[in-house]
């Protein structure tokens, strides 16, 4: 994301403004800056949630993430990039979603009958497979799940994942292979 140095916090928020500038504009009272941040990051958040949360709860959890982001944005200090901060928030909200379900003594993953009721356009077999994989992903250790989500849900290249996780490329690829091996074991 490039920073547009020509803009200031007093200018109206625009599409090409950096995350940092939009956050500052939001803090200065320009609430419409949040809309731009939302549109910019929605797809990534949505994709990540889609991989780990049942189909019928994806939008709900995505909304909760952005509501939490909106509430916390005034105290966002910029110690990390907004995208990284949002990713962490997403993981917390997904974990909270499952904690809530456990408290209500609901099954961790929606039963197949629930998923079948959703008109998602997929066949029953592919829905079953998706639920099966979501369950397997949820039971993986966090670092394994994270590397899989970064590659598949966020479509990051391995060198980008390495940079993001402060690892070298070899270590990242090795972690990825071990993560896929663990997932395979869970799927068997």
């Amino acid at each position: 994301m490039t920073t547009n140095y020509m803009q200031t916090t007093s200018s109206p928020p625009t599409q090409d403004a950096s995350d940092e500038l939009l956050i500052q504009q939001f803090k200065d009272g320009r609430k419409e800056a949040f809309d731009l941040l939302y549109h910019r990051h929605l797809q990534k958040v949505f994709n990540r949630v889609r991989y780990v949360v049942p189909e019928n709860d994806v939008e709900d959890v995505t909304q909760e993430i952005f509501i939490a982001a909106l509430k916390s944005l005034p105290s966002f200090r910029g110690d990390s990039q907004f995208g990284t901060w949002l990713r962490t928030l997403t993981n917390h909200k997904v974990a909270e979603f499952y904690r809530r379900r456990t408290r209500k003594q609901e099954p961790q993953i929606a039963p197949l009958s629930d998923a079948m009721a959703q008109l998602t356009g997929g066949s029953s077999q592919s829905l079953e497979e998706r639920i099966y994989i979501q369950r397997a992903l949820q039971s993986l250790p966090e670092n394994y799940r994270e590397v899989i989500l970064l590659r598949f849900a966020e479509d990051l290249q391995f060198n980008e994942i390495a940079e993001l996780t402060n690892q070298n490329l070899e270590a990242t690829k090795s972690l990825f292979r071990r993560a896929i091996a663990a997932l395979r074991t869970h799927l068997e």
């Binding site: 929605l42 797809q43 949505f46 994709n47 889609r50 991989y51 592919s126 497979e129 998706r130 994989i133 899989i148 598949f152 849900a153 292979r177 896929i180 091996a181 997932l183 395979r184 799927l187």
Partner: peptide, 19 residues
């Protein structure tokens, strides 16, 4: 081969969903 099959399963189950 087994790991590749897992990659294919993941990709097939979650096709790109662009909003």
């Amino acid at each position: 081969s087994g790991l590749e099959e897992t990659i294919l399963r993941l990709n097939r189950s979650f096709p790109p969903a662009a909003l």
